[in-house]
Design a protein around this nucleic acid. Structure first.
Lengths: 340, 340
DNA sequence: CTGAAAGCGCTTACAG
DNA sequence: CTGAAAGCGCTTACAG
């Protein structure tokens, strides 16, 4: 079906060219200390001359070991996850492990496809921030020998290590901050609520609201968590009766907050005077928005680094008890919630 | 060195379990039309029961063909490239080709490492926006049979297809817009200038400035193109004598523009009254900045889609003459350059 | 429609 | 330090 790649040089060609055996070529490449200086140089010269490029599939098949690590994230276009990935890459780079990144885009099917692909590739480990209901699937994969580390998520009964931030606490911090500013009619924008992060942040906010008499929390489920969803959510909110309108918005993440802000500004609604606005993640762009956006900060880089470290530990010792480090979110108050 | 993965089920186990031969298992999986309905179901049942997961390395070795495509981008954390990747993924997904993304992070060494890894993996093609001086390297790779498509770059004498935007035109548009607003002392912030995009945008801006008597263009080379570089660049600019200060900034991309804006606002410099500011790429966050930032828009999604299409075409017919579609940038004027 | 045999391109014991 | 032989787990002609 596809054109045959032209005849590439193989170990045996290199061997012939250098006047040694294939085994020696392989040793020169993989165990240089086993080969004499002279031979090594002759082999290298032959490699350069022939433009030999090792076939990784054959190598992996024989070695029964793939150094690469697979990473599946909710949304690569979200700067928060971009930073988590960067943290993992930095950490794994030290161990000379390439990171293959798969983007689920909050789509459960794409998530499954990536899981399958990575397992077929026999990656040495898997880092994942799950969208769908894949815990059973992950248990199977892990049971077959591929270590799994959960990123940005933790179940009490998890069989695998995880790195998480206390989302319930974060949600509570966001809501308490809004309440402290005198706001009482809160709305949360984001979704889908089936995503654990969203549900937990909402639960935390609900707890804070319940503790204050007369305070309320409603929800606008946008089904996604990008800038466009923020715009949609804000539009739905603006369609409501102005009198009943909330006086504070808790956006499930900063992308949503940015979209909501755009729409509010366009509609002439003043932030924070008419509506206070707080986001989540504290991505770089929150601070430089039209109105600088308050946010609940998560340590993205550190989370990625730590997750990678847990994975390397699990690869080295599959029987070690799983750790579940938990990071604490911090509130970053800016103009969008202050001085309203 | 690493713990042996436990004995996973293999085709022969599935075959035994289903009471057929390994060849039939393989056919059931890869050429279902060659296998009877009953047999196919028995095989599938055995697969499910044993939790068989195909070994991709063995498959690839035998098939001599990898469907995956490798993509190397300058900076995954830049929303512009995130969109280019998304465009490529959308387009390649239709052809059922997974995209493996490698991030060079504007680092020539990481770029080479990814090139080597992808070629060893025998990816069916390579999409790359090059950082370093890798054209010779790419010619070798392409000569060995891996089709290469250049993204966001075009050399007149390229042996491979490419997708590009006219950066010189974009640079000229940015500068002309600033000049039209009555600005005369322009500064470009970005870098390194060794990156072709930066050099060409600058050349275009220079041409525009040269056409206007009394207009000048200076450069602040920041060595990188992220938000932090924008801050650094603006700080260096603010350290200059206020009288000699430029009245307009052309940031090499929007991340740099956002960083510069942050620093200017902090220093109490008014945008656009004291200094006009224009960026490049028109990422989503430019429009929602403290002061909405003017920008030169590049069609990121379309570029990714088109590049992927060219790659698929090159895979299907390696001897087709390379195409070099070129997109036209468009100016998006916002508050940061208007009404100063 | 099904199966026996060969082979993809490496690396790994093992013997020398 | 070097090489002959075996084998990693699949898929592909080919024969039946």
């Amino acid at each position: 079906m596809y054109p045959d790649p032209m005849a590439l040089a193989q170990v045996r060609d290199v061997a012939t060219h250098a006047g040694v055996s294939p085994a020696t070529v392989s040793n020169a490449l993989n165990h240089p200390e086993k080969v004499s200086e002279t031979t090594r140089r002759r082999v290298q010269a032959a490699i350069d001359e022939l433009g030999y490029v090792r076939n990784d599939a054959a190598r992996q098949l024989r070695q029964r070991h793939n150094t690469a690590v697979g990473m599946i994230v909710l949304d690569v276009a979200n700067p928060f996850f971009a930073d988590v990935v960067r943290g993992a890459e930095d950490s794994l780079g030290v161990h000379r492990r390439p990171v293959l990144v798969g983007n689920s885009g909050q789509d459960a099917e794409r998530e499954l496809a990536h899981l399958r692909l990575f397992e077929e590739q026999r990656v040495s480990g898997l880092l994942i921030s799950p969208v769908g209901d894949v815990l059973d699937r992950l248990r199977e994969i892990s049971g077959r020998g591929t270590p799994v580390v959960l990123v940005d998520r933790h179940h009490g009964d998890d069989d695998f290590p995880s790195v998480a931030v206390d989302d319930e606490l974060g949600g509570r911090m966001a809501a308490e901050h809004l309440l402290d500013q005198g706001r009482r009619r809160l709305t949360m924008i984001g979704g889908p609520t089936s995503i654990r992060q969203v549900a937990q942040r909402r639960a935390g906010a609900q707890a804070a609201v319940d503790a204050v008499a007369g305070a309320t929390l409603t929800t606008i489920d946008t089904g996604a968590m990008d800038v466009e969803s923020g715009r949609t959510g804000a539009r739905r909110l603006l369609a409501e009766d102005a009198a009943a309108r909330p006086d504070a918005i808790f956006a499930a993440n900063d992308l949503v907050a940015l979209g909501a802000l755009q729409e509010l500004v366009r509609a002439g609604v003043r932030v924070p005077e008419d509506v206070a606005l707080i986001g989540y993640d504290d991505i770089e762009f929150a601070a430089s928005a039209t109105v600088p956006i308050s946010s609940v900060r998560q340590p993205a880089l550190e989370m990625g680094e730590r997750a990678a470290a847990l994975l390397v530990a699990a690869v080295d010792d599959p029987d070690a008890p799983p750790e579940h480090p938990r990071f604490t979110p911090t509130l970053v108050a800016r103009e969008s919630t202050l001085g309203g």
